[in-house]
């Protein structure tokens, strides 16, 4: 029989280390303005929840029992996958919003440009459509 307590210690060690590295990395990204606070929130939540469940073995065991997982550390992975999904969906909505906003900006830019062009044409010396830009300058 392999010594169980030792294995248990190992997985906890790596989980805690992973959480701490993630946490420090996130802080650093936010500090250098490489990641907006509002988009880092879910990541911090992820690392925080994982850390809590790693340190509080009894909570992890409760969680494992609740969802029907025999080996408690597997519940940790389940938790991780859940948060990953959450983050990915969140980013999909962010991308969709950005696309919508980009399209609205492009539309308005095009409309404005057309308006400026027409204004220039009508306010020029001659209302003729000749593209005589150099002579129509004030």
């Amino acid at each position: 029989m392999p010594p169980l307590p030792e294995y248990r210690f190992r997985i906890e060690f790596w989980a805690i280390l992973g959480c701490i590295v993630l946490f420090i990395g996130l802080i650093e990204l936010v500090r250098r303005n490489r990641l907006k606070e509002r988009y880092s929130f879910l990541w911090f939540l992820t690392s925080g929840v994982l850390l809590v469940f790693t340190l509080k073995r009894s909570w992890l065991e409760d969680l494992a029992r609740l969802v029907g997982v025999y080996y408690p550390p597997t519940a940790l992975f389940l938790l991780l996958v859940f948060f990953m999904l959450l983050i990915l969906i969140h980013y999909s909505t962010v991308i969709s919003r950005l696309l919508d906003e980009k399209q609205a900006i492009v539309q308005n830019l095009g409309l404005l440009e057309a308006r400026v062009r027409e204004l220039e044409a009508t306010s020029g010396a001659r209302p003729s459509p000749a593209p005589d830009i150099s002579s129509s300058a004030d």
């Binding site: 399209q103 492009v106 539309q107 095009g110 409309l111 440009e113």
Partner: peptide, 20 residues
């Protein structure tokens, strides 16, 4: 009249610009 969109936004958004 013409509207020149600086980026490709797809037929739907292009037609919508014209509708506007």
């Amino acid at each position: 009249r013409f509207i020149s969109l600086p980026l490709n936004v797809g037929i739907g958004r292009a037609v919508q610009t014209g509708l506007k």
